[in-house]
Amino acid sequence: MSMSGSKGLLTLATRNLQARWEETRFSWRDRKAREFEELYLEELMTSVNSALRVIDELDKLLEKVHADCE
């Protein structure tokens, strides 16, 4: 699988998670829901965004390596 394919899958999975969380928040609105979001989801989203940036950097590096080998 290519880097762009991996990035696409990660982006799609993240969007799906965000959509399911928004659905869940309609029925789960207490303090524990806020804690869960702050402790787990916000950190996860930050990590995913970092991973997406790294995937972009790796993709560029792999393109350069490939071009240098031709």
Score class of each variant (00 low, 15 high):
residue 1 M to K: 06
residue 1 M to S: 09
residue 1 M to D: 01
residue 1 M to L: 12
residue 1 M to A: 12
residue 2 S to M: 03
residue 2 S to K: 04
residue 2 S to T: 04
residue 3 M to Q: 08
residue 4 S to A: 05
residue 4 S to F: 02
residue 5 G to K: 09
residue 5 G to Y: 08
residue 5 G to L: 13
residue 5 G to D: 15
residue 6 S to Q: 11
residue 6 S to K: 12
residue 7 K to M: 13
residue 7 K to L: 08
residue 8 G to C: 02
residue 8 G to Y: 05
residue 9 L to P: 00
residue 11 T to E: 02
residue 11 T to W: 06
residue 11 T to K: 07
residue 11 T to A: 07
residue 11 T to H: 04
residue 12 L to V: 11
residue 12 L to T: 15
residue 13 A to L: 05
residue 14 T to K: 05
residue 16 N to P: 00
residue 16 N to S: 13
residue 16 N to C: 10
residue 17 L to Y: 13
residue 17 L to N: 05
residue 17 L to I: 09
residue 17 L to D: 01
residue 18 Q to S: 12
residue 18 Q to R: 11
residue 18 Q to A: 10
residue 19 A to N: 10
residue 21 W to K: 03
residue 21 W to D: 03
residue 22 E to I: 02
residue 22 E to F: 02
residue 23 E to Q: 13
residue 25 R to N: 02
residue 26 F to K: 13
residue 26 F to A: 12
residue 26 F to N: 06
residue 28 W to R: 11
residue 28 W to A: 08
residue 28 W to H: 14
residue 29 R to L: 12
residue 30 D to P: 04
residue 30 D to Y: 05
residue 33 A to E: 02
residue 33 A to T: 06
residue 33 A to H: 09
residue 34 R to L: 08
residue 34 R to V: 12
residue 35 E to P: 00
residue 35 E to Y: 14
residue 35 E to I: 14
residue 36 F to H: 10
residue 36 F to A: 10
residue 37 E to V: 00
residue 38 E to H: 13
residue 38 E to C: 10
residue 39 L to R: 14
residue 40 Y to E: 10
residue 40 Y to S: 11
residue 40 Y to C: 05
residue 41 L to H: 01
residue 42 E to Y: 10
residue 42 E to A: 04
residue 43 E to C: 07
residue 44 L to C: 06
residue 45 M to N: 12
residue 46 T to I: 06
residue 46 T to A: 14
residue 46 T to G: 11
residue 47 S to H: 11
residue 48 V to Y: 01
residue 48 V to C: 02
residue 50 S to G: 03
residue 51 A to T: 10
residue 52 L to C: 02
residue 52 L to Y: 03
residue 52 L to K: 08
residue 53 R to L: 06
residue 55 I to C: 00
residue 56 D to W: 03
residue 57 E to Q: 04
residue 58 L to T: 03
residue 58 L to E: 07
residue 59 D to V: 03
residue 60 K to T: 14
residue 63 E to W: 07
residue 63 E to R: 04
residue 65 V to H: 01
residue 65 V to Y: 01
residue 66 H to I: 03
residue 67 A to N: 06
residue 68 D to P: 00
residue 69 C to S: 14
residue 69 C to I: 06
residue 69 C to G: 05
